[in-house]
């Protein structure tokens, strides 16, 4: 900021400097330099994507250098090697099945979380009495670190996919309920009154007033629910499992295979980003009026 200001001052000083030919030329070139910096600055400010990309590149570079020259290859692997190994990881016996299984658990867990969270959120949010009586319980359970009762989930649902799905639902359902309750509450009462005055039935009010109003919070809840389910499923898989991505991350870590570990995590991240992006796209389509 200050450098740009001082260049402004220098511009007003230019005519005087022009009287002295010896002084004028270096000052001119310095000025041109300043202007170039200024232009680059405005260009970058208009393109945040470039800065974002730059930040990622810097992190990857630091990681690459650190992993190659300073750290124990037993514990960490440079990103270039991770990237190159992606194909190999995918062909490790059991990994495709593990990805498929985790994806299945994620999808089922998410579907259940939405199927429970949406109606429950609506019911609690639309009834002031239900909100006052039940919402504190929802917030309490939401705030409780559920990892502490993970062993109970294993006890109830076994070590198969069921316990992972259940634990995923336990993490995903509360953010959905809470965002939907919050979303229903900020509906302007006048909209319901006006719908009623025009003869709308209860179902019509739900369909044409409450649902459209809820779409933003519904999608926000879906996104939060999705990351909740992902967290729950992976935590359960890490804790105890015989298959799934969690099983392989544990195995790769314990066998000192960081390349494969990071490769697997990269795939997982891609999966999460793809799912999130799908939700975001769908949301965008419904939000044209904003």
């Amino acid at each position: 900021m200050t450098s740009i200001r001082s260049s402004g001052v220098a511009t007003t000083a230019r005519p005087r400097a022009g009287e002295d030919p010896v002084l004028s030329s270096p000052l001119d070139s310095r000025l041109r330099g300043n202007e170039r910096i200024k232009a680059a600055r405005t260009f970058l400010l208009r393109h945040p994507g470039i800065v974002r990309l730059g930040a990622v590149v810097v992190i990857l570079l630091v990681w690459e250098i650190a992993a190659r020259f300073f750290m124990d290859p037993m514990f960490i692997s440079p990103p270039s090697r991770v990237f190159a190994s992606l194909g190999r990881v995918l062909h490790t016996a059991g990994v495709p099945d593990a990805l498929q299984l985790t994806f299945f658990e994620l999808a089922v867990g998410f579907a259940i979380a939405v199927a429970i969270g949406l109606p429950l959120g609506l019911a609690i949010g639309l009834q002031p009495f239900a909100r006052r009586s039940l919402m504190p319980i929802v917030l309490l359970v939401y705030g409780m670190p559920k990892i502490t009762i993970l062993p109970l989930f294993i006890l109830f649902f076994g070590i198969g996919p069921e316990s992972k799905i259940a634990f995923g639902v336990a993490h995903g359902v509360f953010p959905i309920i809470i965002t939907i309750v919050a979303g229903v509450q900020n509906l302007k009462p006048i909209l319901l009154v006006s719908a009623r005055s025009m003869g709308a039935s209860r179902w019509q009010m739900l369909r044409w007033v409450i649902f459209p109003h809820m779409i933003p919070s519904f999608f926000a809840g879906m996104r939060l629910g999705m990351s909740g389910v992902l967290l729950g499923v992976l935590l359960a898989e890490l804790y105890v499992s015989t298959a799934g991505i969690g099983y392989f991350t544990t195995m790769f870590t314990e066998n000192f295979q960081p390349t494969k570990l990071f490769g697997l995590i990269a795939m997982l991240a891609a999966m999460a980003i793809a799912l999130n992006e799908m939700v975001r796209r769908a949301e965008h389509r419904f939000n044209r009026w904003r």
Binding site: I190, L191, V193, S194, S197, M198, Q204, W208, P212, W289
Partner: peptide
């Protein structure tokens, strides 16, 4: 029929859709 003080139009519908929705109700 009613006209309220604050805007009671449904913000997610166009003006035309608002009018049609009233008739649907």
């Amino acid at each position: 029929a009613y006209v309220f003080q604050e805007s009671a139009l449904f913000p997610w519908n166009t003006v035309d859709e608002n009018i049609r929705l009233g008739m649907r109700f």
